[in-house]
């Protein structure tokens, strides 16, 4: 998959996260979290793992985390990436 367009997924509710993606020349992941000290590294790893599974090698990915579990982070990243593909196809 390729990040073709700006897209978002998730919410700012507690235990969720908001993921924003947009095309970029290289792969950049930016994480902010209410539990940055405790789980910042885990969130980044979950994000990178998901991007690798989806074959994403380029793009800017911003995660605003409100205490989401790894499997929630993964779901939101995947949703955002898939939306970024779809929106171009629909255009």
């Amino acid at each position: 998959m390729v990040i073709k367009q700006k897209a978002m997924a998730g919410t700012m509710e507690s235990s969720d996260c908001l993921v924003y993606v947009e095309p970029a020349a290289d792969l950049q992941v930016e994480v902010s979290s209410v539990v940055m000290v405790q789980f910042g590294a885990a969130i980044k790893k979950a994000t990178l793992d998901t991007l690798a599974e989806l074959g994403i090698k380029q793009g800017f990915i911003k995660i605003q985390d409100r205490g989401a579990l790894d499997c929630v982070v993964k779901a939101r990243v995947e949703t955002a990436v898939r939306r970024s593909e779809k929106e171009v196809q629909n255009a």
Binding site: V35, V37, Q38, F39, A41, A42, L69, D70
Partner: peptide, 10 residues
């Protein structure tokens, strides 16, 4: 088990 192990706060 649900949350994972938190890194300690400094």
């Amino acid at each position: 088990a649900i949350n994972g192990i938190a890194q300690p706060l400094k």
